[in-house]
């Protein structure tokens, strides 16, 4: 464990708490893409259920349980508790165009052609593109509540911080995970223009608005 990865995971943890805080305080899930949240459940279930047969560390176990549980709870909040505030008409990204290619990539790029390794690759590829429905919704509405932008900033920072972690591990342990690194670079690149707008508007205390 190194500080980059620790702060990355803490940023991911923070993003979940910010999202839960937003849903609870505004009593709505307006501006949040259900499809992205559902993809995250698929990502966590497909990658973190290895806690059932592998033990890495207490930290690893607790974090995996938390991410699976919290992402399912968020789906419950969106689909049940605050259902009236969910507008599927603006959450229009075709998820099948995302899952298909990821499944194909996982069948090609994996460390071993076994069910668990292909599933792991699928999870990694899915995670890198899971934010797309949310970004498309943002593009469509052209603006977002400030707290939602903080959620996205923390979420984007999570995998962005994994990049220096991978560099650090390459030089200190001589290990590198090409599949995770490639997907992580793509995942972080998708946040580029969001971060640009975020740091030039929200951080200056203005409202988050995409150029019309």
């Amino acid at each position: 464990m190194n500080l980059f990865r620790l702060f990355g995971d803490l940023s991911h943890l923070a993003s979940i708490f910010i999202l839960l805080h937003k849903i609870r305080t505004t009593r709505s899930c307006r501006g949040i893409s259900f499809k992205t949240q559902a993809l995250y459940v698929a990502v966590f279930v497909s990658r973190y259920l290895d806690i059932l047969w592998e033990w890495v560390s207490l930290y690893n176990f607790v974090m995996k349980v938390f991410f699976i549980a919290s992402s399912c709870f968020i789906l419950y909040l969106m689909k049940m508790k605050y259902r009236p505030t969910h507008d599927p008409s603006i959450d229009t990204f075709r998820v099948e165009f995302l899952v298909g290619p990821c499944a194909l990539l996982a069948l090609i790029f994996n460390y071993k052609f076994t069910f668990t390794e292909v599933l792991w690759s699928l999870s990694i590829f899915l995670e890198s593109l899971a934010i797309l429905p949310q970004l498309f919704m943002l593009q469509r509405t052209g603006e977002a509540e400030t707290i939602t932008t903080h959620y996205l900033a923390a979420l984007g920072a999570y995998r962005a911080l994994y990049i220096p972690n991978w560099i650090y591990r390459y030089f200190s342990e001589g290990v590198v995970d090409p599949i995770a690194v490639t997907a992580g670079l793509v995942q972080t690149a998708l946040y580029a223009d969001f971060f640009y707008v975020y740091f030039t508007t929200v951080i200056q205390g203005q409202k988050f608005e995409l150029p019309a």
């Binding site: 990865r5 995971d9 991911h12 973190y48 290895d50 592998e54 890495v56 560390s57 690893n60 974090m63 995996k64 991410f67 460390y111 071993k112 076994t114 390794e117 792991w120 994994y162 972690n165 591990r169 290990v175 995970d177 995770a180």
Partner: peptide, 10 residues
């Protein structure tokens, strides 16, 4: 082999 590649990451 690769199968034991760094799986200690989230």
């Amino acid at each position: 082999g690769h199968t034991d590649h760094v799986k200690d990451e989230l």
